[in-house]
Design a protein around this nucleic acid. Structure first.
Length: 193
DNA sequence: GTAGGGATAATCT
DNA sequence: GATTATCCCTACG
């Protein structure tokens, strides 16, 4: 049986625990064009006392969702052209989140190929900007609940073997050495080995 | 197959 | 005015 993950689940674990528990679960997005989904194979954790975290320097209009309760979406634009999708986590008001970095495409692969303009299955969702484009997630959806359609997570039946390493794209002096990146060992769908 | 750099604009100082 | 939790195209073996 696969059920939708409730807001209570997101609140029951620390950000670091949640980032690992999400691996193997299915992210689903229902749109007018069709339904897309994929298995979460790569995540990164951003903690409140972590210099790489958007919430580190306090609350701003952009990062406000991060300071709300766990189980909501935080979507932001990066490098002017790409978007990243996060799930808010940690205690209410804390400012923590889990970045979803890669998916293994499952449902709506035709639609993903059309949105991405690529055919290779491993090139549809193998990066934070790519998966947002493939899934049709938009900035407007920042602040939406992840416990109800159209955007939600379903339970997986996998207990994947997890590999832990350092995060991608973090500049120097920003806690780039912290082991806050997690991915499913051996997956061909991650953004980088 | 790998490496390097440009694109491009919201956000914050 | 600097920075950025990225992607893609081009050049070269």
């Amino acid at each position: 049986m696969s059920g939708i993950i409730s807001e209570g689940f997101y609140r029951s674990f620390s950000t670091l625990e949640l980032a690992q528990k999400l691996l193997g679960m299915e992210l689903v997005h229902e749109t007018a064009e069709g339904t897309c989904s994929g298995i979460i194979v790569e995540t990164e954790a951003y903690l409140h006392n972590d210099r790489a975290c958007h919430a580190f320097s306090g609350i701003t209009p952009r990062n406000r969702p991060m300071f709300g309760p766990a189980g909501f979406a935080y979507v932001y634009q990066i490098y002017g052209i790409h978007y990243c999708f996060n799930m808010v986590s940690g205690p209410d008001g804390c400012g923590e989140a889990v970045l979803i970095r890669a998916l293994e495409p499952l449902l709506g692969i035709d639609l993903m190929q059309a949105r991405r303009g690529k055919n290779s299955i491993t090139d549809l969702c193998s990066g934070p900007g790519k998966l947002v484009q493939a899934m049709g997630i938009r900035k407007m959806q920042s602040c939406e609940s992840l416990a109800y359609p159209p955007l939600y997570v379903r339970n997986g039946n996998l207990t994947p073997e997890i590999h832990t390493t350092t995060r991608i794209g973090i500049g120097k002096g920003k806690d780039e050495h912290l082991p806050y990146r997690f991915y499913i060992k051996g997956s061909k769908f991650i953004s980088k080995p």
